[in-house]
Design a protein around this nucleic acid. Sequence first.
DNA 1: GACCTTTTCTTGAAAGTTGAACTAGATAGA
DNA 2: TCTATCTAGTTCAACTTTCAAGAAAAGGTC
Lengths: 167, 167
Amino acid sequence: MTTASTGGPRWLTDEEQGVWQAYLHATTLMEDHLDRQLQRDAGMPHTYYGLLVQLSRAPGRQKRMTELAKDAKITRSRLSHAVARLEKNGWVRREDCPSDKRGQNAVLTDEGQDMLTRSAPGHVEAVRQAIFARLSPQQVKSLGEIMQVIAGGLQPEDTDADLPWLR
Amino acid sequence: MTTASTGGPRWLTDEEQGVWQAYLHATTLMEDHLDRQLQRDAGMPHTYYGLLVQLSRAPGRQKRMTELAKDAKITRSRLSHAVARLEKNGWVRREDCPSDKRGQNAVLTDEGQDMLTRSAPGHVEAVRQAIFARLSPQQVKSLGEIMQVIAGGLQPEDTDADLPWLR
DNA sequence: GACCTTTTCTTGAAAGTTGAACTAGATAGA
DNA sequence: TCTATCTAGTTCAACTTTCAAGAAAAGGTC
């Protein structure tokens, strides 16, 4: 199947195909697994949980919407809907930003923090079981480096990756 | 941050946390990237594209619904909706299964095959650019092994992973 | 200040996903 | 056969995500 360099479209080598398949299978199974785990134990999808985690780590347990969206790698629109839902659950609250009247801060409530405290151990355990318990230290290190490279290549990277001609 | 073994919940080490972050960033960016690429160039999300690929590789370009769902790692419900949509596009057609009157075969149409032929090069290129062009041969090999391990741990594995007490 | 552009965030509709309920056909046991 | 159970696939309602559109404030520039 490996196409020689005939000028036609370059396909993946057999090895690359296999790796790509494995990547797709592993990542979809993983996402499904965590979504179910969190839906069951915390009543929300993985994305939403990630938002709460981000907030819990931020100073004052709050963040501007745009910054939160960027950190969580989701669109602002998606974040608006998500925060609306989390607000209905009482886990997040919106506050006007004092310095910018357009701005909104998403604030993690005490209930939100509690829920996080309750569900974190189970979630961490799920991640460990699925990944770290199965990989050698060498592989863990490798996985980190590889994911860093991939993410780096896809990151907007503050308008410079797209403009290499500007030095 | 690394919690000693005090009997409380075991957290991730700092290194593991970093790796997990990198994993999440890379995989969400990747999925977004491919979804956009395919939505733009092929008019469908990545999952749907994957279904067409599966069918194109199957003998007779067709597959039973349940088998297709299993291979693509999605629920039967999701597949029903997806096939309905792909059918409306003219890329897939349903046929009754001759041997089992409950069964349906999803069949890739000629239009579907054409669309696949047209969009495959661009898609492959996107995958290569994002992953294989950036990793060393060593890393590619490593990534494959790692993903295999992770997928293996999450796979239903034909009712045996869930029933270890049956040997 | 008046004007134009950009940034921040929200909204609404359409598309996709989920989980539970449901129909119809297959299977197995008495 | 009669019955109970299981499997294949679909459907419905609730929920999430996307995309395009829009309101409001901020930041130039003249």
